[in-house]
Design a protein around this nucleic acid. Sequence first.
DNA 1: ACGATGGTAGACAGACTTGTCTGGTAATGT
DNA 2: ACATTACCAGACAAGTCTGTCTACCATCGT
Lengths: 197, 197
Amino acid sequence: MTDIATRRRESPARRRVLDAASALFYAEGIHAVGIDRVIAEAAVAKATFYHHFPSKDDLVCAYLREQSDLVRQMTVPASDTPEDRIISVFESLGEFTCGPGFRGCAFVNAAAEYPDPRHPVRAVVADHRAWFRGVLRDLLTAAGHPDVERTATMLVLLRDGLVVSGDLDDSEENRALVRETVSRILGGKPKGGARRR
Amino acid sequence: MTDIATRRRESPARRRVLDAASALFYAEGIHAVGIDRVIAEAAVAKATFYHHFPSKDDLVCAYLREQSDLVRQMTVPASDTPEDRIISVFESLGEFTCGPGFRGCAFVNAAAEYPDPRHPVRAVVADHRAWFRGVLRDLLTAAGHPDVERTATMLVLLRDGLVVSGDLDDSEENRALVRETVSRILGGKPKGGARRR
DNA sequence: ACGATGGTAGACAGACTTGTCTGGTAATGT
DNA sequence: ACATTACCAGACAAGTCTGTCTACCATCGT
């Protein structure tokens, strides 16, 4: 979606607005950043801003959609086996949470600020999450995993844990455990109704 | 901390403010709820509010401290074996995320709205997380688990996953998988450096 | 009897919020 | 040549935000 050709065609002012908004919203939170801050940082007139984005909500959705696009472009797991590809996805995630400016997941953080499930922002978040779950489902299926749906759900839990704890706890410690955690989740074979106890 | 004796001794107006603030902050977010909303809901004069809470930040911290106290009171895992107690803690959490008014974790949501790690709100969040990790560490130690620290870290990741995904995805599905997920995390024995490939 | 404490009601200040509107300039496509 | 489009600068409206302040009332311990 947001490839180079599209960017070249798009208006420079709009680009500056989106870049400024992304940096500010992610670093400081959405409600905490006013339109005036965004247009000042983007060096854009107010009328120009409202020409490209009819409301702040539109800007927020555009910000999240672009983040989703960027994540999708970066998530191209290139490894030998499908199982290694799953591990690769999560190791990238673990490294991401150790990055210098990491402040949690843009989607989780945005959802915390927009509690109404019917709000458009929530739809963008849900769309992104559905995509990620689909990636995991495909990889598990390709790996011939015997319990695709349930394991995909568990891996989504791990994903959310990594982005939250990566912001609030020691992200290096988490990164060092990513591989082992994925292995434990993948490796526990349920084998019918037999439960440990 | 917040036991019945303390509550009886405390001022009714302050109690109403804290109750109103807790409900509003949790349901709608902190930045989205102004002081005027809180004092109107609590039926309290503005001067009275600022008498008990010098600033909004103080109110937010008091809200989170009380939530932490409530969680600690509710987290009294009564089961036979320590391992069952761990499962019990997470099954309670899974049920909690299925509750009617569940809107995610108060601490995670608050942290999303206060990105500055040096902010007092972040200290309350960190304190709560340290307590929870300590509970897991103690239970794992009591259970004689061979890998206490690393497994505690993984279980914290699971906790964060449950509270985030419980708000954004199908919380019933997560609840149905809690027991199995904890088992997989506990059960995968690292046994020296042997890694699956 | 009296001061301290805790409470109510509401005006006020000053900053900040989103969003609209006027007016003018520059580039671009037909 | 001309209309459309994109852009800039900034005033403005109407509301909300946190926090302060005045003025008054009730209760209670000493």
